[in-house]
Write a protein that binds this DNA or RNA. Sequence first.
DNA 1: CGCCTTTGACCTGCGC
DNA 2: GCGCAGGTCAAAGGCG
Length: 465
Amino acid sequence: MGRSEEEEDKQTQKMDLSLKIDHHTSEPVKADHEVEEEEEEEDDDNDEEEIARAAKVDKEEEETPHEAAMAAEDQIEEEEENNGSMVENTKAREELSLLQVETDRMKEENEVLRKVVERTMKDYYDLQMKFSIIQQNHSNKHKEPQISLSLENNSKDDHMKKIGLGLSLRLETSGTNEEADQDHQLEESKYNKVLLQELTSVGTLLSSVQNKIPRTIHQHESPGITNNAGHVASSSPPNKKSRVSVRARCEAATMNDGCQWRKYGQKISKGNPCPRAYYRCTVAHGCPVRKQVQRCLEDMSILITTYEGTHNHPLPVGATAMASTAYASHYQNTNTTFLPSSSSNPNHNNIDPSKGLVLDLTSSSSSSPPTFSWPPNTTPFTNNNIFPTSSSSGNHHHHNVSAIASDPKFRVAVAAALTSFINNKDINHSNNVHNNNNGSSDSSNSNRWILESLSSSPKGKTHQF
DNA sequence: CGCCTTTGACCTGCGC
DNA sequence: GCGCAGGTCAAAGGCG
């Protein structure tokens, strides 16, 4: 990692620290369970504290030369004297200052989140570089190694065991001169350790999603993908395509979900006057994933997106991070996994035998956005803290993440990413690495595109949110 | 020029 | 075998 990157890390840490200090100014450090137990009390106390803090900030900030504001205040004071309605005006002023504090805080949060995205991107590129370096080393030694990146439970790793997650990276050589390569393998193991450390954060994100998804989705046999993985094997019928349907509110005809799609057909299906559009994933060449987009007959504002198949390429980082976050949201919010629901609640997520997994993300779109904190039920990350822990600054990110999660664009992005996670759960990861190497330009392009999508709303055709 | 959408034709699976 | 509906193909044209 270069010096500039280290500096940026420090900056990020500083920001985190400042946020923590800001949010827990006078609070001593507490264990997670203590925090949870006292959460309700704190809620009550927080109001008073916030008012006091707001008043303080108000005092500090309002003394800066905002003449107009001062004049307004003077006027308010005069009116107070004249009308004697001091109580009402004081209330109004308190509310005003509260809003100002809230706005400032939101700005800080936005900054932090932006840094998170940037940093995740950087990590991804770093890992890509290291993979290519490793591959080059091997090709120089006339070897054809198989790089296998797998997400699995790793009982040897205490930290991972604790949180029930694991990430392993293995470099498998297929040559016969194994003894002669022992030195190389030592070097590889060093590389692996470094990579493992750096992948831990990313892997935790991914596996936090994967570990909570039951193996109920059928794995379909993708063209060009042979399932010869040793440690993960599909138990599903090979010819059955996996499908995930997502219902989400969206005004636009289609929504960006972190992948690039090309429309290849449109049909008016029976019983629904709204045409069904067919899209094919174009992030990587030959990616078999398809999606169907159709408006709901009952509620035209609901867009039903059905994903089918398995991506043969790594998911864009933006979608990956979003998926993890959103899955965390969903998981905490419903306190359930995607269980076949016996409930009659149409907003529950079901596994319909004919449609596969059905994710209904329409329930909280308007009135009650999902509330959650990051990360879900996990201990703090050790290295590369991609996201701050919920125990220290979870509440701080609460509002922002909720707002993001309530965004329908975000939801569909999440759905696409989830689909990929679900579908990839049982396939050979070495194939992914292989494809990643072949299509590195594609994935980097898509990553660039994801960043652009996150930072603005482009007017591209299929790139629109 | 390359990539996209549109759209009619064609293919395929399924029920009768 | 036939008809229907869903899904896919591919030519044509648009757009940046």
